[in-house]
Design a protein around this nucleic acid. Structure first.
Lengths: 229, 229
DNA sequence: CACTATATTCAACATATGTTGAAAATGCAA
DNA sequence: TTGCATTTTCAACATATGTTGAATATAGTG
């Protein structure tokens, strides 16, 4: 449970694109928008703040992407393919290792989560911001269904199928409810609100992703096995 | 697990204050603000939208509460005492029933969650909106720590203590990490994004709170027992 | 009734916001 | 170099926003 070498390989999928002042202004706009939207949400960010953060004129974001909502969409879509590929590869890898009976619930959950930890620990802080943005979107009554479903449900359904095979006695609905619990726990970790830091009086840190996932994986797996076993 | 008569009594704590057009304009403003902030967040709501939804002049919210942020705080604080009392009472009741050894993890989680279900099923839709607002705040990197901690951490610490007694072998940090998983799952249920409806192709409904908690309680309890047992 | 405090509306302010069109700068091929 | 397409800046627009002060209405008290 502590080491996860198979998926560590997936780290190569998230290429390093660091350097805080990229030459490409179009990407700098997306980086700035990503960081700001992740913290303040769609309505809490102005085009001027984005431009200022990117050291760029106000009109440039409109020129490159169109309207403000198009900037938001561009940010949201920029990393989704890479993320989906990393997680799909992780699922395939753990299925290959498991043989015809298929992987255990815990292995499936681990494959679902570890690529996220790897992304958050990437030297490019954009990945951490991107996942915080996903937290905002996933939890939003306005964007939640539309935006998340269109980009991520295909991958999620693959995982659901794997879970159904590992839990042959489960009712479909139970799997989905359990998935919602997983998605919620994950979302709050993405958000990095710092509340657990205060609640635990410093014993836990919101940015200690490795420990977060070390606990989350057996926690969620136990929940699935209990409810769907 | 299906019936929960002890806590059903707590329903009397949430008095019924329905009627969509109250005489008191000050409360109508809070109701409108509550519903709007819950869906659109702080920055997605304007004083004019609040006033229009409450059928009231724009300047009235300023007169009664001060600045926009004060309206937000007033909404957030309005129901917190009632909610804390209901949940504290639920904890006390399940502790009284359990005797000196203390209640099981599952009973504690049930006491933590069922009052929320009761609130969401109250005829006053304000409670549902209020909990959706809590979802927004709890998941926000801007408000999460400050606002949640000041109003709810005292209650949460009581529950943590009860959980520590039920899980004597647990490390403190593990309890807090597990609590974060609980808090996240709960938050996403509050938010009512409708995503599970689409993902499950209608098999699950975001507003079916009873089923949500029926699954969440054993799910979360199993997670605690696994990680902290 | 008159008097007073509270509640509510009206009109307006200064500022912030998304967006646009023209001007200027830059990059690049011939 | 010239010429052309792309990128970036500048200036401005119409509108939206939080907030305020004065005016008006309402409620309660003697």
């Amino acid at each position: 449970m502590d080491s996860y070498n198979e998926i560590q390989l997936a780290i190569t999928i998230f290429e390093i694109t660091g350097m805080s002042q990229k030459a490409n202004k179009s990407e700098r706009i997306l980086d700035a928008a990503e960081a700001l939207f992740a913290v303040h949400g769609y309505d809490g960010v102005t085009m001027r703040k984005i431009a200022s953060e990117a050291n760029v004129d106000v009109a440039l974001a409109n020129y490159h992407f169109g309207r403000k909502m198009d900037v938001f969409n561009a940010v949201f879509e920029r990393r989704s393919d890479k993320l989906n590929n990393a997680r799909l590869e992780a699922l395939r890898r753990c299925q290959d290792l498991a043989g015809p009976s298929g992987p255990s619930v815990e292995k499936i959950i681990e494959a679902f989560l570890r690529p996220l930890e790897i992304a958050q620990e990437n030297t490019d802080p954009g990945w951490k911001n991107y996942l915080a943005l996903i937290a905002y979107v996933n939890n939003s009554p306005v964007w939640g269904e539309k935006m998340m479903s269109s980009l991520f449900d295909e991958l999620v359904q693959e995982y659901i199928e794997a879970l159904k095979k590992a839990l042959p006695n489960a009712k479909d609905e139970d799997i989905y409810w359990c998935y919602q619990n997983l998605s919620g726990a994950l979302t709050l970790t993405f958000a990095q609100t710092g509340r657990i830091d205060k609640l635990s009086k410093g014993k836990c840190r919101s940015d200690d992703f490795h420990t977060a996932y070390d606990n989350m994986i057996p926690f969620i797996a136990a929940g699935f096995n209990k409810v769907c076993g």
